[in-house]
Design a protein around this nucleic acid. Structure first.
Lengths: 110, 110
DNA sequence: GTGTATATATAAGATTCCTATATGTAAGGG
DNA sequence: CCCTTACATATAGGAATCTTATATATACAC
């Protein structure tokens, strides 16, 4: 059975997927998600920051403060080994959900 | 852009999809969703009933009280024309979401 | 010095889903 | 006749996620 969290957790998968490419800070993360999905998936920063805290507390990501070239202070997040291990089962859960919805569609058209 | 409701609204699509096959009451509805998705998608009745009220208030479904052969009182819901019209765009939204998540996956594997 | 882009943060609110609980009928076994 | 299981609807309390709105602060261009 698909867990309860999965149905809402689009942001979780999106963050993990983007961080898989490399470390990033929140502001850029939001832009990448939007760009890579061609604007289809979009998160406000107000939704993202609390999400990043939660994921850090779970040990999926780790953030460190750094100063960029322009002298701006920002928090750079990277995937932890634990977070990396979560990606595959998370994607499988999503895949299950998609298949389940397809089944409902198929039956109703039979 | 994908609307906010879509990411959580699995139950909504499931209910509409199953009701598309024909009128049903809540209890049976829950069983059909579980059966047709082979147990992958499952909703408790406590989650379903409030959902049915909301959908009725929006005019997507309409429920009427009836007495079954065994003499049990139950509320039978059927899709309204408005509800039927919502199904296609809802499925398109879901499709968009799936594609968006696939894009994130594809990029991260490039 | 004013605006725009960068960057993080919190508060208040809505929505959806869950567990737990309550109510009541019908059918079958012991 | 009592107990359990299946049928059937309903509400309360709580958790999680996402939204809008707001606050703060720096860098750069005009």
């Amino acid at each position: 059975m698909i867990g309860a969290g999965i149905k809402r957790g689009t942001a979780e998968l999106a963050v993990l997927s983007v961080l898989e490419e490399g470390p990033l800070h929140g502001y850029e993360l939001a832009r990448r998600i939007e760009q890579q999905t061609k604007g289809a998936l979009r998160f406000t920063l107000a939704a993202l920051y609390p999400m990043l805290y939660r994921m850090e507390q779970r040990g999926w990501i780790r953030g460190i403060w750094e100063t960029s070239d322009n002298g701006r202070r920002r928090r750079c997040y990277r995937l932890t080994p634990t977070g990396k291990k979560k990606l595959l089962p998370l994607r499988q859960e999503w895949s299950e959900l998609f298949q389940a919805l397809k089944m409902l569609k198929r039956v109703s058209h039979a």
